[in-house]
Design a protein around this nucleic acid. Structure first.
Length: 347
DNA sequence: CGCTCCAACCGCCACT
DNA sequence: GAAGTGGCGGTTGGAG
């Protein structure tokens, strides 16, 4: 079982802490078994948090054998992180562990020197401060999360949810992530590159929500779809449709569409033996070449490699744990839409 | 890998 | 005047 360790610092934001705890404790693999072992650890086994103090069974030594470390935000980024915590994080980073921050947790990673030279994000309010304090970090204040492979950062708390689901999708596949998302009653799983600001459609106002249109589109992914036609379907000009789309979804129609097609393809690869050529066709990509290109940008690996890693990770019951972990590490060493070497998408 | 072509996107602006 | 719409055209980037 993949080992997730959530680090509780003094002043930890309860919501940031709860999100990974809930997502990872509920996520299940294909056989319905819990896929993660989740621990909360804190220096001295205790952490203050606003209205309460949290006591836990694990101290910082738990970081040493974690597969994934999550660092939630704290309420005061001007407070220096205890040296012992920084040391434990640095030591852990030397292994193959994956480290992710939520919200202002990015400041802790930065302080530990783990973000130098990397792209990263944090809550939009704190982004300027992060950039000013650590010039070596390429701070992107506009995205929900940044995946640099072994190091991931996410924006405000709700983006932490998107980040956790993203990790589940990398580890266990699109189906498991979709299931986890439904447990959270998430309306849509958002891509990392989406804007932090999304104008929420006020019911009844103006042209109305695009949600129905998105749903229709998802059901017709396999058809050739052009933006003009989608706009016509909802009775808007292409120009207005583009505008509404950016406001409500946080990205452009074509990018959203490509991502939806990739996620559908990912599921098909997991659940069927269809050749890549046919998978491409079924999800509406013009060719297998196009599928491979887009798939790589989103998932960080090739369709064929994903299928094999997925099979290897889920079929045999014995030794599943190590295979999940190492399989992922091998397949997606720098995965993600925003992985350093992977072609970036927005921005 | 490089080339060509065209859809997609977006700034600008006139118009409701 | 404020707010929203949509057409135009230039640039970009994706598909083949």
């Amino acid at each position: 079982v993949h080992d997730v360790c959530v680090l509780a610092l003094d002043g930890v934001v309860a919501f940031d802490l709860a999100v990974p705890v809930e997502v990872f404790t509920r996520a299940t693999d294909r056989d319905g078994e819990r896929a993660y072992r989740v621990r909360i650890c804190a220096a001295g086994r205790a952490a203050r948090s606003g209205l309460f103090t949290l006591r836990t069974e694990h101290d910082l030594s738990a970081l040493a054998d974690a597969g994934t470390i999550i660092v939630p935000g704290t309420d005061d980024v001007s407070q220096p992180t205890p040296p012992a915590v920084l040391a434990a994080l640095r030591a852990a980073a030397l292994s193959s562990v994956r480290i992710a921050s939520v919200c202002s947790g990015a400041f802790v990673l930065a302080e530990a020197g783990l973000l130098d030279g990397l792209r990263a994000t944090t809550h939009w309010l704190a982004a300027p401060l992060l950039a000013a304090r650590y010039p070596g970090i390429r701070v992107d204040p506009d995205v929900l999360y940044v995946d640099e492979g072994r190091i991931l950062t996410s924006a405000g708390a709700a983006a932490g949810l998107d980040l956790c689901l993203h990790l589940v999708r990398r580890d266990l596949g699109a189906d498991a992530a979709g299931h986890a998302a439904r447990l959270c009653v998430m309306p849509l799983e958002r891509a990392g590159g989406q804007a932090q600001f999304i104008e929420h459609a006020t019911p009844g106002a103006g042209g109305g929500s695009l949600e129905a249109a998105l749903e229709w589109t998802r059901r017709h992914l396999h058809e050739p779809l052009r933006v003009v036609d989608l706009a016509r379907r909802v009775g808007m000009s292409e120009r207005t449709f583009n505008r509404r789309f950016r406001e409500q979804v946080g990205t452009t129609p074509a990018r959203w569409l490509a991502r939806e097609r990739v996620l559908r393809a990912q599921r098909l690869l997991e659940s069927s033996d269809l050749p890549v050529e046919q998978v491409a066709d079924r999800v509406g990509f013009g060719s297998a070449v196009t599928l491979r290109q887009r798939f790589g940008a989103v998932v960080g690996t090739s369709p064929q490699a994903w299928r094999q890693a997925f099979r290897a990770a889920t079929t045999p019951r014995l030794e599943t744990d190590d295979r999940v972990r190492s399989g992922v590490a091998e397949v997606a060493p720098n995965a993600g839409e925003y992985g350093g070497r992977v072609r970036t998408y927005d921005s």
